[in-house]
Nucleic acid binder design. Sequence first.
DNA 1: ATGACGATCTAGGATCGA
Length: 258
Amino acid sequence: MKITTWNVNSLTARLQHVLDWTAANPVDVLCLQELKLTDDKFPLDAIRAAGYEHCAVFGQKTYNGVAVMSRMPVRDVVKNIVGFEDDSSRVLSVTLDTPQGEIRLVNGYFVNGQSPGTDKFAYKMNWLRGLQSYLQAELARHPNLVLLGDFNITPEDRDSYDPEGLRETIHHTTEERDHFRQLLALGLADAFRLFEQPEKSFSWWDYRMLGYQKNRGLRIDHILVSEPLKPLVKSCSIDRVPRKWKQPSDHAPVTVEI
DNA sequence: ATGACGATCTAGGATCGA
C-alpha cells in the first residue's frame, strides 16, 4: 500500500497536476496540504472520478487547508489538534482499514513560523507542543500510526542546501529540530531515512532565483511511522518529476510504501 | 538590506509562504 504527502500550494491551481500525477502514480492514499480553498470548493467529482472515492476535507479560504484522498474508506475523521485552539485548518486525522490492519493517519500542514523571535515563530512552537501531546494520546490509542505532511522543519543539516549559511534561520533552528526529535522520541521513525537515499535530497525548492534548477532546496515534507509499522515499510521516496512541470507546486510529493 | 516567484483577493498592490 502506498501513501503520499504533497503540499500542492492551492488545489485550485494544481488540480490538473494532482490528476496527472495520480494517473501515473495510482497511490492508495494522497494527503494534501495548502488547499487554499473552502470545503465547498473542493473538486470532489474530479477526484472521485480519478479513483479516490473517499475524501476527508478540512478547507480554509486563501490559506492552509488539508485533505485526505483515499481509495479505501476513511473513518473517525478529526480536524486539527484536539485540545489546541487554532483558527487555521492544519491537521486532519483519519483511520484506514488496510490489509496491514488499522492505520491512523495524521496529515499536517505545520506552521511556517516566518523567523525566530516573531509572533508566528511563537505560534509555531506552541502548535508543535500541542501536536506532540495530541500525538502521544493518538499513539496510545492507535499503535499503527503515520504522521505525514509539510513539517516546515529540516531535521538535520543534510536536509538543507546551505546548512551553514542558514544556521538558526527558519526551518533550521535548534528549537524546531528539538521538536522534530521529540516527535521521533514518541516512537516514530522518519521513513525516508530508513533507506539509502541520494545526497541532497529535498522536497521543496524556492520558486525564485532558479531554486530548483540549482537544487537549492530543503527536505521539509516528511512521513513518520510508528514502531509496529517500521519493519513493514518497503520504500520511501521523493518524486521530483512534477516539480519540473509547468506552473508546479514548490513542493514535491513524498511516498511511503507499507 | 532587499527582492527574486507564485497564489490569493480583488482589480493594484499587499500579504504570505519557506
